[in-house]
Every structure is written in structure tokens, then in C-alpha cells.
Amino acid sequence: MFDKTKKETEKKPSAPKATAPAASKSAPASNSGQTTTIGSSIKLNGELNGDEDLLIQGQVEGNVYLKEHNLTIGEQGVIKANAFARTITVRGRLTGDLNGMEKVTITSTGKVRGNIVSPKVILEEGATFKGSIDMDAKAAKPASQPAPPSAKSA
């Protein structure tokens, strides 16, 4: 689906004319299958809704809904968004609320300002985090998932 995102992104006048691929299939960052990458030269505004794993190396403003899949904010990723995914790994910068149904990890290079809801939160040494963490397993169950948007925009 993010191949589609790529095409839509390239049609947007606000999107930079990227010489690098906007979104590309890359080596999986997790063990759940395909991972789509949003490259470092890409800026997205709006909501992302997907059914596969996603690695963001670019800049995203809006909300990200990946349901049962894994979201990784790469070291170059700068995100101002609320994110909902099965697992969320932050290696870059994120401002917003994170809802990880299984786990949220902020690695040593990650900087997060916002609130986290997840039954398991891992903060590696060197990680920066400001906000609160709701470690109530009940709070992160799918029942509390916000209704995903009917259409996505990039």
C-alpha cells in the first residue's frame, strides 16, 4: 500500500522532487514480513494507514495507524504524529503520543516527547523521553484503538 503512497506523494506539489526513491521495499526491520521505507528526503503531511511494517526515515506530520504491524522511526526520522501500531521502535525524533499494542522501544538514539500507552516499554540507555507512560495492559488493547481514517492522505 505504501507503493501507492509513493505515487500519491510524488503527485503532490508540496512534496520534494526526490531523486531517491520516496518509498521503497527494503530489508525487513522486523520478523513480520515486508517493510516499507519512507526515505529520508520525503516529507509527509496527513494520516498514514497501513497493513504492513513501516520504517520512517523522513519527516512525517500527522497520525500513523498500522494496526497489527510494526512501526520504526529510523535515526533520520523526524515525526510529529500520534502513532498506533503493534510495536513501535523509535531511533529518531518523535513528538506525539505512541500507542503500542505490544511494545514500545526507544533506543539509545531516540528522542521522544509525548505520552506512551503500551504494556511493555523499553528505554535503552541514552534514550531521551519526556512525558508519561501508561503501562496498563488493558489501556493498549485494540478496543481503545482510535478509529482509523477511511482514507489516507500524504
Binding site: 528505554l123 535503552e124 540507555e125 519526556k130 508519561s132 507512560i133 501508561d134 503501562m135
Partner: peptide, 21 residues
């Protein structure tokens, strides 16, 4: 400041953990 150790320890409780830093 946010500490993975503190968070891990208190994850045994149903809780909301606020980082004052």
C-alpha cells in the same frame, strides 16, 4: 530523568508513570 530501569521495575504494576525530569 527517564530511566529504563525505573520504568521496567514499575511495569509490574498497572500504572501511569510520569517523568518529571
Amino acid at each position: 530523568a527517564a530511566s529504563g530501569n525505573h520504568i521496567e521495575f514499575f511495569s509490574r504494576f498497572r500504572c501511569r508513570y510520569h517523568i518529571g525530569d
